[in-house]
């Protein structure tokens, strides 16, 4: 099978903890030299309230709720910048309680044909075995989860679905999850920053290995 490159790719970083959404306005990122003023001023769909803040500044989408902070980029030449903006924000807000973090990758692959799509899905699950009990069944989604191999708390979860964006395509969602809280311990953003500094490159490499395993083998 010819090597298939992702047709569309996005990354997101999700922190779970206790946040003050009102902080995360586009201009806050400018004031702390994390975002160019020009990009912040062009931000669209800006919402800044005590309960939720969200904006889209070109390549960057930010959404903050009280229990969750979410940042994403849908362009592969902005993934490092995405890491930097989250790292920068939580180096400033280092005492924010953060209990867990996910480095997530979404990849859509164009397989060009239905048989090629089915072959990839069949490697995950034997679809045909369902035809006797579910006539006309259609594969929707399958997830699998493994332990972390780096000694940190957490897991890595992979979800495979037919792509809803590309005909006969494949969608992979990869959640590299880090548990940052242990009972009786203090979980702060400083730990999330440590993970972003030291585990980012491994997370990127892991995505490549998973893609290789699912799509190319």
């Amino acid at each position: 099978m010819a090597k298939v490159e992702p047709n569309q790719e996005g990354k997101s970083i999700v922190l779970r903890g206790a946040f003050n959404p009102k902080i995360f306005s586009p201009m806050w990122f400018v004031r702390h030299d994390l975002l160019p003023k020009e990009e912040a001023e062009a931000a669209d769909n800006v919402i800044v309230t005590a309960d939720i803040s969200t904006f889209t500044a070109g390549w960057l989408h930010i959404r903050a709720l009280q229990p969750e902070f979410f940042a994403s980029a849908a362009e592969s030449d902005r993934f490092e910048a995405l890491r930097d903006i989250v790292l920068g924000a939580f180096q400033i807000l280092e005492h924010t309680p953060v209990t867990s973090m996910g480095i997530n990758s979404d990849l859509h692959f164009s397989t060009l044909s239905k048989p090629a799509q089915s072959a990839i899905i069949e490697r995950f699950v034997n679809i045909s075995s369902w035809s006797t009990v579910l006539p006309g069944e259609e594969f929707i989604s399958l997830s699998t989860r493994g332990k972390r191999a780096d000694g940190r708390e957490g897991h890595c979860q992979v979800r495979l679905e037919p792509s809803r964006r590309i005909e006969n395509g494949i969608f992979l969602a990869i959640n590299d999850h880090f548990e940052l809280y242990k009972s009786g311990d203090e979980a702060t953003a400083a730990r999330a920053c440590d993970v972003l500094k030291n585990c980012w490159r491994d997370a990127i490499t892991r995505v490549g290995a998973i893609v290789e395993h699912v799509v190319h083998t």
Binding site: G10, K11, S12, V14, L15, R16, T56, H61, P67, F70, S72, A73, A74, T99, S100, M101, G102, N104, D106, H108, S143, Q157, R159, E161, S163, R164, R165, F171, A173, N175, H177, F178
Partner: peptide, 23 residues
């Protein structure tokens, strides 16, 4: 199956008219 502790969220699509594999 999206628990409170999950840290997976989809990257929003840039073309909202397309159906997407959203969380």
């Amino acid at each position: 199956q999206v628990g409170d502790s999950d840290t997976y969220r989809n990257v929003p699509p840039s073309e909202p008219d397309k159906a997407d594999n959203m969380a």
